[in-house]
Each structure stands twice: as structure tokens, then as C-alpha cells.
Amino acid sequence: MSKYQLDSSPIYIDGTDIPKNKLNITDSELIHEIEQNLLTQAYEQFSVQVNINTVFDEEYFVNLHKKTLESLYDFAGLYRNVNMSKGDSQFCLAEYLQNESARIFNALKDDNYLSNILDKKEFATKLAYYQGELIALHPFYEVNGRILRLFFDMLCIYNDYSIIDYTDSIANGKYIQASIECVQYADTGKLEKIIFNGLIKR
């Protein structure tokens, strides 16, 4: 589990980078395994619920985090209220987080949740833009990347694509590098290529 730099550390067990949790787990490998199991269950649950009336707004996004992780964390579904960085990447400052989140989701709504885009390359470009925005936002204390990928996978299902295959890019570190470039340079080029290569029309 990677270490974040925070102005304060309201959610971690003292002296560790392990989040305080409802199961009182102090082993980082075990808690990561439980998170992954919860994510797997979430994919199964939410993918069958996606339909023509699903609204991919901020409430839906927050609810993904809450419903996926509420059995493990008290902070599930809550935006952070402290500044957070990782390495040289400074995520959205906490004081601007709510406004920036609203801006992103209002723009996605104005884009009709990408439902009018028929071209795969244009679809990938838009996905990379919005995913990059949420990567830089980094609204939750923990499990940001996996929840936002869950969100965009559900958006793909909504638009008649299969979930995005990130397997190779995560394994070889290219996804992390692409995410860093989204935050530090607002450059989504590498992320767009990863998404395009992982997109399959159903």
C-alpha cells in the first residue's frame, strides 16, 4: 500500500499507512486483499444494475465508494478534508475539492454521459479526459484509482462497451505513469492510449 503525504493523518493507524478499519486489521497485505474482494463483489453487483436510466453523476460516483467499502471503512463515501499528495503529485486542494468535483460531473452531464459518441477513438479521448480529471481530484482518502476505474467501467457498459482491460498497463507500471502525467502535466495522452487499447465494443 503506497504512502500518501497528508497535512494530517485522520484515517491511519498511528505510525503506519494502514487505514483504520472496522475489522481491526493491521496487516497491509490482508487489508489490500479484502479491498480487492470487495471490488470484485462491487463489479458483480453494479454491472448488472446498469441500464438506460442510470445517471453517472457525482452521487453515483460517491455511492460506488460507499457501497463498496462501507463494511470495511468508516470513511467510505466521504470526500477527504485534508490536502494530499503522493511523491511529486499534489492532488486537488481540499478547499477546492467540492467545487471541482461539481465542475467535472456537470461537464460529464453536458456530454450526455458520452452516449452520443459513436467513434471509439473519440470515446477513448473523452474517457481519458474525465478519468484524468478524477485522478487529479483524488477525492477520497483511500481506494481512489480502483473506484474511479469501476465508475468508468460502468460508464462503458452503459455505452455498450465491455469493461476496460488495464491488466498489462497496471502490471508494467504504465498506468501509474499515465496517472502521474495527468496530475502533474494535465496530459492524458498516455492514458488515452491505454484506454483505447483496452476498449472492446460489445
Rank of each mutant, 00 (worst) to 15 (best):
M1A: 13
F75V: 05
K22A: 07
T125H: 12
Y166S: 00
N51L: 08
Y43N: 06
H32W: 11
L23Y: 14
K20N: 14
Y141I: 03
Q49W: 09
Y161K: 03
L108S: 00
F46S: 01
Y96S: 13
M84R: 05
C182R: 02
I200V: 14
G198R: 00
I31S: 07
D17A: 15
D74M: 06
F123T: 01
L114S: 03
R202E: 10
D7V: 08
I104F: 03
N99F: 13
G198Q: 00
I163A: 03
T54N: 10
L191M: 10
E29Y: 12
R202I: 10
N63F: 09
C92R: 08
Y79F: 14
D110F: 11
Q41D: 14
E35T: 07
V183I: 12
I104V: 11
V62G: 08
Y79N: 08
G77C: 08
V143R: 09
I11P: 01
E58S: 12
K126E: 05
M1H: 10
F75R: 01
D168H: 13
I104L: 01
N197P: 02
I170W: 01
C92H: 06
V82I: 10
G145S: 05
L64K: 01
L72H: 05
A136T: 11
S162F: 11
L93G: 11
E122K: 12
V143T: 09
S71D: 13
I194A: 01
H138P: 04
F151A: 01
L114C: 10
A107K: 13
V48R: 14
V55N: 12
Y43G: 02
I117D: 02
N63Y: 12
E35I: 04
I176H: 09
I34Q: 07
M84Q: 12
I25C: 12
C182G: 05
A178N: 03
F91Q: 02
G15N: 10
I117Q: 03
Q131N: 11
P139G: 01
F123W: 03
Y43F: 12
L23R: 15
A171N: 11
N112P: 03
N99M: 13
I176A: 11
G173H: 05
L72T: 05
E29G: 08
L38E: 09
T188G: 04
C182M: 06
K67L: 14
N37A: 13
G145N: 04
L6H: 06
G15R: 09
R149M: 05
Q49P: 04
L30A: 11
L93E: 15
T68G: 06
K120N: 08
P139W: 00
D168N: 14
Y96V: 08
K3D: 15
L199H: 05
E95H: 13
S85F: 02
F61P: 00
S47Y: 08
S89M: 12
I52E: 15
I13M: 09
A128C: 08
Q98V: 15
L137W: 01
R80C: 00
D111R: 10
T188I: 10
A124R: 00
P10E: 06
Q98M: 14
L30C: 07
I170K: 08
V55D: 08
L97F: 04
Q45G: 11
V48L: 12
V183R: 00
F46G: 00
E192R: 09
E29N: 14
Y60R: 09
V62M: 15
K126I: 03
S85L: 04
K190R: 11
K86G: 00
